[in-house]
């Protein structure tokens, strides 16, 4: 059974442990600006929303890459950037309608969530279970997927 990140904003306290864990695990630095998960703060409503790639089926990033540098990890379902192949052209960063592929100017490559090879550091670090890694068909990702399908990019059917 493939697993997915399940995000429950109701449980998020805005502690940013996920951002620190992500940047440390993937980039070797405690630097939220290098994190692949981002917590958005809605001050007026007193609400925090962790946000990252949903590994959507449409995979616009992977489709748009001109050098085949983004591939599907068939074990986790993650769309994974190869640092060796990525030339840093950034087309994926504008093709992803969720804004979850970002350019890292210190490496000249793009970064996105790769589910940490099946052990997401953000979920491990989250003290309130706002981010969990659970069976894919159980998660509240349906809402995000529905959102993804609404994005009018290309066609409604896939091969």
């Amino acid at each position: 059974m493939q697993k997915s990140l399940n995000i429950d904003p109701e449980k998020c306290t805005g502690c940013l442990q996920c951002e620190l864990a992500c940047s440390y695990d993937n980039e070797g630095v405690f630097n939220p600006s290098k994190s692949r998960i981002k917590v958005f703060k809605f001050e007026d409503a007193g609400r925090f929303v962790p946000y990252t790639c949903t590994q959507c089926d449409e995979a616009w990033c992977m489709q748009a890459c001109p050098v085949d540098a983004i591939s599907l990890d068939t074990t986790t379902g993650a769309k994974v950037v190869s640092d060796t192949l990525c030339v840093g052209c950034k087309v994926c960063t504008i093709a992803c309608p969720f804004g979850t592929v970002n350019y890292n100017s210190s490496t000249g490559k793009v970064i996105k969530c790769d589910l940490c090879e099946g052990e997401p550091a953000c979920a491990t670090a989250c003290p309130t279970a706002a981010i969990t890694y659970v069976d894919a068909n159980w998660t509240g990702l349906d809402k995000m997927r529905a959102w993804a399908e609404k994005t009018d990019a290309g066609t409604q059917v896939s091969a």
Binding site: I94, T100, N102, Y103, D152
Partner: peptide, 15 residues
């Protein structure tokens, strides 16, 4: 700006 620029596509194409 390089952070989250793709979302502009989402906002435009979702109308």
């Amino acid at each position: 700006r390089t952070e989250h620029v793709g979302v502009l596509r989402g906002l435009i194409q979702n109308r």
